[in-house]
Each structure stands twice: as structure tokens, then as C-alpha cells.
Design a protein around this nucleic acid. Structure first.
Length: 369
DNA sequence: TCTGGGGTCCTAGGACCC
DNA sequence: TCTGGGGTCCTAGGACCC
């Protein structure tokens, strides 16, 4: 019936966004409890000096150290800062523990990143109580401090979880938008990055509220497309649709890249480095039972210019030799011998459950005709 | 401020087909 | 014949996220 579908449409959802605070630092603390209370960073390498700060402990943040900063600058801010090397195996382990735990509350869960999830809690009787239980258990039992945002849409839940960190629970209803969201500085707007943000600031747009004002519309539209702007407005005003199905999401692309210890320009050496990258990417491709049709490489020159080249094959494949040959051919065709600091490969345009055209399927095909 | 390693989505032009 | 519009796929690059 018509009224029924209208009711479904108007039903307000209850979405949680759970964000693990300083996640890599928390994992490191679980491994090395003596780091507790100390200013330390995760990431970087004292040997190659190529690193950036992935996460800073809250104590390190007091000195102005932030993620994304290079390690040298972190040392300049606080010479006694401790450095913990990156341990992705460790983060994956605790990430799985996190997702396994929150999945016990609902199967409508969506991974947003290694340390963030959305949950549809619409049908829980007392969501705030559940949020408190989740937060306390993650923190006390799993040693993963976190903040939780509760809102009617994914976007608002995400904005809400950012409002109180660490260990906050923030409820953001539609009727709270003007009071709680509009006064926030423009840089807090999720989706607005380092390119567009400064342009809008120059146009005198200081808060999220300013961004929604009619009077600023024309200057905003000179810095982003109409569609992009409208989509921001829809999100901010709480009108975005929010559907969370279940946990599993098929990846759209798989890539593997590495920053070299030294810049190099020898083609044969670079090609040698490509094979293990393909092998690692293939392991993940196979885990998802996928076959890739488009393959490509990416390189970053010593002057930080990016170049990507890709090629779409006739048939999808997960064969190391086929992929290696195709990428090698593509690379030798396009490489201009500039020194490079990073090399990567990307698989995309996936096909699921592809049946290779072998002798067996050939016979079936013959019989069928 | 000598700057990682994953990802997603979008745009824009060109090839190709009808 | 040099002239059309729409649709899809491919390629390269860019913005943005954690």
C-alpha cells in the first residue's frame, strides 16, 4: 500500500558511527604497555628518513605533533618523542577483534576503514544504552578507546563521532543541526579537503553554517561543481539516504605500492620490484575470488609528480605471468627514465566467479550448441 | 614542513557503435 | 556525402578519506 511505503520512507533511522581513537597508537600500547603516558608516534623510519607520522599518542599531540607530519618535524617539536615502527599485521589483528565484537550487536554493519564502522541500530530498544556498553567494553576490555556518533544518517553520525574525542558519545538529531553543526569551523566538514578548503576560506566562508547560506552560493560554485555542492547540502541538512546492508563489500580496486629507499631510474631494477607487488595484490584478489580486467602501474617521481598508466585486457585474469607481462609491457612503453621514489600497481574492473575458458568448459560449450 | 599506503569517487576527452 | 546525437567503455588524472 501507498501509505505503507511512505511510512517506511519517513522512518527515522538510528545510525552509529564508531571511531577508534588514535588506533595505531592504541595497538602499540597493547603490545608495549610501558609506552603508557608517554609521547610517542607510530610510523616513519629513522634509517631512511622517508617516513611520516601515521598516528601520534595524545601525549605527543600536546606538543603539536599530528598525523601526516614528517618525522623530522615531530622531532623538532619534541626531541624526546619515541618512535614505534609501523606494524600493519598488528593493526589488522585488532581491527578484526573490533569488527567481530560490534557485529554481535547487528548484522547491519559497514566497515568505513580499518578503525571505523557504521551500524544501523534503528531496531534496538535503547540505542544510547547500547552505545555506552559498546564504548565501555571496547575501552576497558579491548583497550581500544573510541568515540561514538548517533544520528539519523551516515554523514551526521560521522560528524557527531568527531565532536567529542576521545571517549565521547554524541547524539546529533536533525533538529540539532543548526545549533551543533552550523557553528563548527569549515575545516571540520567531512569531504572538504586541502585543495578546496583554502579557496572557500578566502571567500569568507568560516563555518559549516556559512557554507549553507544562499549568499555564499555563487562564490562556492566557482570552486566546485553544482552536483558536488548539492550533495554537501543534502548531507549537512540530514537528507542523505543511509542504507547499511551487511559486512561484506566487494572491493572496486586492489593496489600495492612501495616507496623505495632511494630514488632510482634503472628500468630493469624497477621491473624487478614490480613482481612482488603483483604477488601481494594477487593474494588479496584471490581471497575475494575476483579476476581483474584492468591492470596498471603508478609511479611517483623524485619531484613528486604522479603518473598512472593502465590497460584493459580482453579477459579478466588472476594469473601472475599474464599480469606481470602486461604491466612490464605497459611500463617499458611509458617510462621516461626520470628517477622515481615510488612504484605501485593497481588491479581493477573486477569480474566475480569467472570461469576460465579451458578444455572442460570448451566441451560443454560444444555440446550446448 | 623533502612529504606512507592503502582505498573511493568524479571528471573529461576520445573511440566506437547505432 | 564531413554531417548528428546518444550511449558505453576506456584512459589519465585529481580530490578526498583514514
Amino acid at each position: 500500500m501507498k501509505s505503507e511505503s511512505l511510512m517506511m520512507k519517513n522512518q527515522t533511522k538510528v545510525i552509529f558511527h564508531i571511531d577508534l581513537n588514535a588506533f595505531y597508537a592504541s595497538c602499540q600500547l597493547i603490545e608495549d604497555p610501558y609506552l603508557k603516558g608517554k609521547a610517542f608516534i607510530v610510523g616513519g623510519s629513522a634509517v631512511t628518513k622517508r617516513g611520516v607520522v601515521l598516528t601520534a599518542s595524545y601525549e605527543a599531540r600536546k606538543y603539536g605533533i599530528r598525523s601526516g607530519m614528517n618525522v623530522k618535524d615531530a622531532f623538532d617539536l619534541y626531541p624526546h618523542v619515541l618512535v614505534a615502527p609501523t606494524r600493519f599485521d598488528l593493526y589488522k589483528k585488532h581491527s578484526k577483534i573490533f569488527f567481530d565484537y560490534i557485529k554481535t550487536f547487528t548484522n547491519k554493519m559497514m566497515k568505513a576503514s580499518i578503525d571505523e564502522a557504521y551500524l544501523d541500530m534503528t531496531h534496538h530498544k535503547d540505542p544510547v544504552k547500547v552505545a555506552k556498553i559498546i564504548q565501555k567494553t571496547l575501552n576497558d576490555y579491548y583497550h581500544l578507546p573510541n568515540s561514538i556518533g548517533i544520528a539519523p544518517t551516515l554523514f551526521l553520525a560521522k560528524m557527531a563521532s568527531d565532536m567529542k574525542k576521545p571517549l565521547g558519545i554524541t547524539i546529533l538529531r536533525k533538529r540539532d543541526i543548526v545549533d551543533k553543526l552550523f557553528p563548527l569551523p569549515l575545516k571540520d566538514l567531512y569531504g572538504l579537503g586541502r585543495k578546496t578548503y583554502p579557496k572557500l576560506i578566502d571567500s569568507g566562508i568560516k563555518t559549516i553554517g556559512d557554507f549553507t547560506k544562499k549568499e555564499h552560493q555563487s562564490s562556492i560554485l566557482s570552486h566546485m561543481s553544482e552536483e558536488h555542492y548539492q550533495s554537501f547540502l543534502t548531507h549537512i541538512l540530514g537528507n542523505s539516504t543511509s542504507i547499511i546492508d551487511d559486512d561484506y563489500q566487494v572491493p572496486k580496486s586492489i593496489s600495492q605500492e612501495t616507496t623505495l629507499n632511494y630514488d632510482i631510474d634503472q628500468e630493469d631494477l624497477i621491473i624487478e620490484m614490480i613482481q612482488p607487488l603483483i604477488e601481494d595484490a594477487l593474494k588479496r584478489l584471490e581471497k575475494h575470488h575476483l579476476y581483474a580486467k584492468t591492470i596498471g602501474f603508478k609511479l611517483k617521481t623524485s619531484t613528486f609528480k604522479l603518473q598512472t598508466r593502465s590497460k584493459t585486457l580482453m579477459t579478466a585474469t588472476n594469473d601472475l605471468i599474464v599480469i606481470k607481462d602486461a604491466i612490464t609491457e605497459l611500463f617499458t612503453l611509458h617510462y621516461n627514465h626520470e628517477p622515481i621514489r615510488l612504484i605501485g600497481i593497481t588491479l581493477s574492473n573486477f569480474v566475480e566467479d569467472h570461469t576460465p575458458f579451458n578444455l572442460f568448459t570448451y566441451h560443454l560449450f560444444q555440446q550446448g550448441t
